[in-house]
Simulated assay, not measured.
Amino acid sequence: MTVQLYARDVGTGTPLVLLHAFPLSSAMWLAQREGLAGRFRVVTPDLRGFGGSLLGDDEPSIDAMADDVARVFRRLGVQRAVVGGLSMGGYVAMALCRRHPDLVRGLVLADTRAGADTDEVRATRLRQAETLEGEDSVRVLVEEVLPHLVGPTTFRQRALIYGRVRGLVQATPPRAAAWAQRAMAARGDAFETLRGLKVPALVMVGAEDVLATEEEARVMVDALPNAELQVIPRAGHLCAVEQPDLFNQAVAEFTTALARTGE
């Protein structure tokens, strides 16, 4: 079944397609739409099953999610874009680079990893997927995933942001979350894709991220032919939500430089 993703499309200029984290939706990009749409065309799809997008009946697969995003490009008439992905969105962005490289003008990878899951992480994902479906509730995500999504600084000092993230997790459809966990558990290693990337990349990581660490970000930078690293202070796994001004500034500088060189 072909799934048509719901996507918000605001602003004009160089297209910037941002792919959201698990288990959130494109609502997480609010500060990016507000802060970047004055300079760029910002497109934020809801990945399948999340937000306003249907789940469909395909086998769980990050590649299927990447193909969904490629169809958004075609539907909106976007020839090429700077593609940014945070966490799960980064997995989808890397799959897009492998399957549809002609669409990618530059790559932003935030709080994500190029390696496949360890056996332990994979087992946890599959157990959570079973629980999500069995209970038809996101309780397991609120208890086990939410505590690691933001850093201690946000938890202590940014109650509104933490509350917003909690609300987005609670709004996640359990079946979509289960599907996505199975898709992430089944994904392979993306280092070959990174080594073959023909466009510039920006790798970003929250200094307090425990899910996708600074060390893992540096390994990705080393694999990429043309990449820079930006460590976002006082941010955990959702650096774009926790420190939106710093995130937006880095993405704006990267995208503006790409547009200037005509990459």
Rank of each mutant, 00 (worst) to 15 (best):
L5D: 00
L5I: 02
R8H: 08
V10D: 06
V10P: 00
G11L: 10
P15C: 13
L16R: 07
L16H: 05
L16E: 05
V17K: 06
H20E: 02
H20P: 10
P23H: 08
L24G: 10
S25V: 08
S26R: 09
L30T: 15
A31W: 07
A31H: 13
L36H: 04
L36D: 02
A37G: 10
G38V: 01
R41N: 05
G49K: 06
G51D: 00
G51T: 02
G52M: 06
S53C: 07
L55P: 00
D57Q: 14
E59F: 08
A66H: 09
A66N: 09
A70H: 10
V72K: 00
V72I: 07
F73E: 04
R74V: 12
R75F: 01
V78P: 02
Q79G: 15
R80M: 08
A81I: 11
A81L: 08
V82S: 04
V83Y: 13
G85I: 07
L86R: 06
G90K: 06
C97R: 03
C97W: 01
R99C: 13
D102C: 03
V104C: 06
G106M: 12
L107A: 12
L107I: 09
V108Q: 05
L109I: 09
R113K: 14
A114E: 01
D117I: 09
R122E: 13
A123G: 14
R125S: 12
L126H: 00
R127A: 15
Q128R: 15
A129K: 03
E130Y: 07
E130K: 13
L132W: 03
L132R: 11
E133Y: 06
G134E: 04
E135D: 15
E135S: 12
E135G: 06
S137G: 05
L141V: 08
L141N: 07
L146I: 03
T154Y: 07
R158W: 08
L160V: 14
L160N: 11
I161N: 02
Y162H: 15
R164N: 11
V169W: 11
T172W: 05
P173D: 15
P173S: 13
R175Y: 03
R175S: 13
A176T: 09
A177W: 01
W179C: 08
R182A: 10
A186Q: 01
F191L: 10
L194Y: 03
R195S: 09
G196Y: 02
G196P: 01
L197G: 12
K198S: 15
V199A: 12
A201W: 13
L202W: 04
V203M: 09
M204P: 11
A207P: 00
E216M: 14
E216A: 15
E216T: 04
M220I: 06
D222V: 04
N226Y: 08
A227W: 13
V231D: 00
V231N: 01
V231Q: 02
I232L: 10
I232F: 05
I232Y: 03
P233G: 03
P233I: 10
P233M: 03
R234E: 05
A235I: 02
C239I: 02
C239P: 15
Q243S: 06
P244R: 14
D245A: 15
D245C: 10
F247I: 05
N248A: 11
V251I: 06
T255H: 05
T255A: 14
L258G: 10
A259C: 07
A259D: 14
A259S: 15
E263Y: 12
